[in-house]
Design a protein around this nucleic acid. Structure first.
Lengths: 136, 136
DNA sequence: GTAGCACTTAGAGTTCAATCTAAGTCAAAT
DNA sequence: ATTTGACTTAGATTGAACTCTAAGTGCTAC
């Protein structure tokens, strides 16, 4: 069994956050020891790691709660849970795509600075356009 | 010249948000017409599009403000601005990488559900492990 | 046994980024 | 001329996700 701090370290979150998740109903499965302190099994740790994965990939706490609630309802909800994860998978792919598009724009801007610094008075180009082209 | 709503539509944000960015000092360059209404040039629009790109790729408003402040200081800050964008570029790459890692975990979980739904009592496997393996 | 520390709780506070509200201005349309 | 509607402002509110506080409990080491 792990303590709250061991889990916190393993998952790279704070003990505060674990208690917050518990309060939000994300950890209905954890048990307490004789002195009412939370104790975490290997299985609990794995679940919390998945929760962190979902959070870190942009799923909201309340959506994660829905997933956990489904888990607690039993194995007949497995197909629904699978659908939920497939939807989230699509959301992750969208995010990656958005980030890549923004990366392209930033790269163009960096390329502008490269040429601008080399030759500050280079001619106008829509993709280089920024405050350089304004009278301040 | 564009109105605030035209810019909002073009950038896929609200007029509220544009005023908020202005209040936060992100738009020190915009001018007003005779009736004190904001008017946006093509150059302004391009800057706001870059601001949206930076925001959408995770840069905080106050960091964007630093970038804009540098822009307003004149062309001698171009190298610093370039460095700032290169740092942000790294941040975007980190984000993409994190998302990809989380995508892998979600994919493994979906694969677990695929096999689990096909044969609910398949043997234990650490990567499939979740609430299925707990006594509720 | 008592000092120190890690834990517990409910609930308050913080931060970020909007988003909304209320009160008011302005110009065109009826 | 008055109504409509879009704009303006400062400042309040929202919502998400923590993060901290205060008060208290209980184990361990001296």
């Amino acid at each position: 069994m792990y303590t709250i701090n061991e889990v916190a370290t393993a998952c790279n979150i704070s003990a505060h956050t674990i208690r917050f998740y518990d309060k939000e109903g994300l950890l209905p499965f954890i048990t307490r020891n004789s002195t009412r302190k939370r104790q975490f099994s290997e299985a609990d740790l794995e679940v919390i790691k998945l929760i962190c994965c979902l959070r870190n990939s942009g799923m909201q706490v309340k959506e994660i709660k829905q997933y956990i609630d489904l888990c607690m309802q039993g194995k007949e909800t497995a197909p629904v849970r699978r659908e939920l994860l497939i939807d989230h998978r699509k959301a992750i792919l969208r995010q990656i795509d958005d980030y890549k598009k923004n990366l392209n724009i930033v790269d163009l801007k960096i390329a502008f600075y490269d040429s601008y610094i080399a030759a500050p008075h280079a001619g106008y180009d829509p993709m280089k356009f920024m405050l350089e082209n304004k009278k301040s």
